[in-house]
Nucleic acid binder design. Sequence first.
RNA 1: GCCCGGGUGGUGGAAUCGGUAGACACGCAGGACUUAAAAUCCUGUGGCUUCACGGCUGUGCGGGUUCAAGUCCCGCCCCGGGUACCA
Length: 920
Amino acid sequence: MAGYNFNEIEKNWQQYWAQKATFKADNNSTQPKYYVLDMFPYPSGAGLHVGHPLGYIASDIVTRYKRHKGFNVLHPMGYDAFGLPAEQYAIQTGQHPAVTTEENIGRYREQLDKIGFSFDWSREVRTSDEAYYKWTQWIFIQLFNSWFNKSTGKASPISELIALFEASGNASIDAACDETKIFTAEEWKTYSEQDQHKILLNYRLAFLSEAMVNWCPELGTVLANDEVKDGVSERGGYPVERKLMTQWSLRISAYSERLLQGLDTLEWSDSIKEAQRNWIGKSEGTSLTFEAGDDSIEVFTTRPDTIFGVSFLTLAPEHELVNKLTTPDRKAAVDAYVTMAKNRSERERMADVKTISGEFTGAYAKHPFTGTPIPIWIGDYVLAGYGTGAVMAVPGHDSRDYAFAKHFNLPIIEVVSGGDLSIESYDAKEGVLVNSDFLNGLDVKSAIKTAIKKIEAEGLGKGKTNYRLRDAVFGRQRYWGEPIPMYSKDGIPYPVAEKDLPIALPEIDKFLPTETGEPPLARAKDWTYNGYPLETTTMPGWAGSSWYYLRYMDPHNDKELASEGAINYWQQVDLYIGGSEHAVGHLLYSRFWCKFLNDIGKVPFDEPFKKLVNQGMIQGTSCLVYRVSNEKKIVSAGLKNQYDTTAIHIDVNIVNNTIVDIEKLKEWRPSEFADADYELEDGKLICDNEVGKMSKRWHNVVNPDTICQQYGADTLRLYEMFLGPLQDAKPWSTQGIEGVLRFLRKAWRLFHNNTEENFQLSDEAATKAELKILHRTIKKATEDIDNFSFNTSVSAFMVCVNELQELKCNKREILEPFIVLLSPYAPHIAEELWKLCGHQESIAKATWPVFNPEHLIENEFNYPISFNGKVRFNLNFALDMDVKVVEQQVIANEQTQKYLEGNAPKKVIVVKGRIVNIVV
RNA sequence: GCCCGGGUGGUGGAAUCGGUAGACACGCAGGACUUAAAAUCCUGUGGCUUCACGGCUGUGCGGGUUCAAGUCCCGCCCCGGGUACCA
């Protein structure tokens, strides 16, 4: 049958595109640019499943559409090739991660090619290539050589800071830094080189410091906060504990405010922006000092208005004053509590949120206004890492303080009216202040202002903004990552000279830590630089992915990360598509690096990704058959209740719409199924479905290759778009894929006669009806791509083909523009038909058809409205126009007539020829 | 707990700025073509009711605004995702 042979067509065109380099993007073009980026994949051993291409298909549609619209489009692809799984595999098998990574990339590429994406493969990047990570290391060194000047809100060279120190010490410098003693210029000059470097480390944007980190013993490495979920590692799900370690970190907290402000300029979904806002966690409040004998305790509060409601202070168990304040009689209890709190893992602490624990230190502080003694407690609900690690407890108006007070029987004072404190605390920022001296009678908002003023006037504290965002731990005790390009001399870290980059990953005998517990790189022979020991930790997975979008602009440049010309031409990523699981990790780090590179003059923009679209996850549908317990008997799903059965997950690829192919089942696992008895329903073995993550474990992985083989890549592409809105999560199912294939066959037959043998195209002029169909589709297809509503576009194509088929339309004037509309979705069939139409060049070079609203106005539709004014017609499209009609009559139902009585209509709304609203 | 989404036929999902609810597709039922099958085409398909024309009802629940509500407002219920002692 000489019908629509998708396998052959697709193979041919994929070859053609590769040979002709059809999709190569030019860095020197006079066309306007458009940059479409996909989140590049980590090449795992499992290969691609049908969920992976979803976002790539959407981005490819936009890419091809923009090319038709005359844009020079950059649409690259690469691999996020460093990462834990390859290393874990290496530990188990001894296979070098570079080898497995290479193999996996090969498989990915093969699978991607089959779907017919229009990537410019000449720009492929891999984060594990030396030529790539040379620049990742280079950026790290720039961070090391920079400090953040709060008064300008920007990063500046560290040399500038040294000059400032030499001129006037550090007292007047407003920098993002760790706590540093104040020194004068004279004192600075007397410091040794070593001491000076130690001080500078407090200011550098990449710095070495001793800090509490998330340590994962199972993985043998530290993790950043976003790599820890529910107290276990995101990768692997291993327990994570707190540990004090000397670590490389990046001072991302310096950029908190800019990262927050920048969100307002982005076209991202509200949920992702909100997640980032929460992660940054800005809160405005005031610091306030409580005197406790010779010591003073500083607290941070967002509710200074409740100052008269303070009935105790709570310190974090790790607070530095705990030891000093504790009275001798309380010492034993407090020490025991502190030890216990320290040893609890993050996970235990989190699982235990509801248990209230704490101890009284025996000490008292003085209330700053009333002078009343206030007991000082410790409790692990106060976090050492946030604010000052101490809180003023206002049990009446903070639920955590309330719970603590109830548990230990501490006084609860009402200072804001509106709640019932016998039941719960009243946390709302509404109500009138009571029992509060000079604040009495004020509402909460003005009370906050008045309180801050008073606190500042009396020198008790000052207005302050806190951020939840912590600095990012950057060193990993792993092998398969970028070596941190630093060496150590006299205990001080120095960067490797730029001319000596990259510091290549060394070969080592085993991918494990050394016997003394040092990271794997310590196994390398002669791991030194000019005779000094090199850093043995490597960078985290997100390092390479934080700037890869820049490398695509100029991927083979060995002089810089990308040329100024290339960056200036391509600018920001116009459209970024990927999963929402990177909401606070990758997307935040990339923004941070972009802002930094902007500060040092490397990139002319402040945000990397202008528009972001998150595709939903495609879940797996697993199939369950039932085996009768203790028997070798399989029963159909409808009969399972008649027996005592166990459910078995079987391979979804041998099931067709809940009907199991028994022969294939027997082949799949002969030992289990070949000689089993089967009890069927209507001669069929029916299985149950269950929706969950697509994974090998549930035998529910569907490969795109299989679908391409069976239905064709164009059908796969259309079907994945047709499945529902791009952003929604949806379970994979092939129910309905037939309909898409049917549609493509119909489209094919528009160009071929009924026996599907001969290609026929008529040059006859199109009729009004045909033009109407076409232009309705042009309008819809154009708008839908702009709105990311790909699923409704597919429907529109189906309607279009059905209607043209009914009219037996095979006119060039209609069909040629139609294939162009279809080509972003189904590029192979479009290319084939385009060629058959007599075109020499790829359809990619064709121009997008222009919508002409004239064709949508029906002749027989005469405006039956008696007024001069603005009418909105809601036909198959929305079109506003001013009409002046002379001979008319208003057609209205009884209700409307009544409504109209005595009023001259100003606006009439007509839907498909019917008046639906008349505005008077 | 808090913050985002969302709830529409047997199923996936349409419905623009408040304007014919259920586009399109799957599935199902019936029919045509065929020796037969596949493929293709046609008809029907929210529910109730009616021989039929038609009528009534219908977008998680309860109220409200409006000539008109899936859409807007108030109060609930349920589901999905994120986040968690951040003072």
